[in-house]
């Protein structure tokens, strides 16, 4: 039951990306190209997604626990540190170079595009490197404190 629901939520997410046009890197790059062929569509994607999530999370979190799990797993780190600037800056360069971020990249695998497979393989390697470094840093007492949750 839980597995089927997770599959369906992933499916709805991917369908949303396709309907929104976010699964097309050309559209994403045009959203980021303010001084060129600017396409503001993706602002509407964010507006739609945030509006539903803003109210939906508040309703869902009124429950003492999730319907199919023991507890809610919310990020506990709240302060702004270097990681939350450095990480997104590195991510932003890759996003701007390709027009691809993790969700659309995975959905593009289903389109059977060879380019998507190249990107996802490199992305997985980048994620593995970050997780490996994360583990080393957590073991190093002099390093910055490890944030307990991945959003």
């Amino acid at each position: 039951m839980a597995i089927l629901l997770q599959f369906l939520t992933g499916l709805i997410f991917g369908l949303g990306l396709i309907v929104a046009g976010m699964a097309d890197p050309a559209k994403v790059l045009n959203f980021l190209d303010l001084t060129g062929t600017w396409d503001p569509s993706l602002a509407f994607v964010m507006a739609g997604a945030i509006a539903v999530t803003f109210f939906g999370f508040r309703l869902a979190l009124r429950r003492p626990q999730p319907i199919l799990a023991k507890r809610f797993h919310l990020p506990t780190a709240s302060g702004v540190d270097a990681r939350v600037v450095v990480g997104p800056a590195i991510f932003g360069i890759g996003w701007g170079l390709s027009g691809l971020c993790p969700g659309p990249a995975l959905t593009l695998l289903g389109f059977g595009l060879p380019s998507a497979f190249i990107f996802v393989a490199a992305m997985a390697a980048g994620m593995a490197i970050a997780r490996w470094r994360d583990g080393r840093q957590a073991a190093d007492v002099s390093g910055p404190q490890r944030a307990p949750h991945q959003t």
């Binding site: 990480g87 997104p88 800056a89 590195i90 991510f91 932003g92 360069i93 890759g94 996003w95 170079l97 390709s98 691809l100 971020c101 993790p102 990249a105 190249i118 990107f119 996802v120 393989a121 490199a122 992305m123 997985a124 390697a125 980048g126 994620m127 593995a128 490197i129 970050a130 997780r131 994360d134 991945q150």
Partner: peptide
């Protein structure tokens, strides 16, 4: 780009 997106997002 994939390496940067993967590393940076994590």
């Amino acid at each position: 780009a994939g390496l940067l997106v993967g590393f940076g997002s994590v």
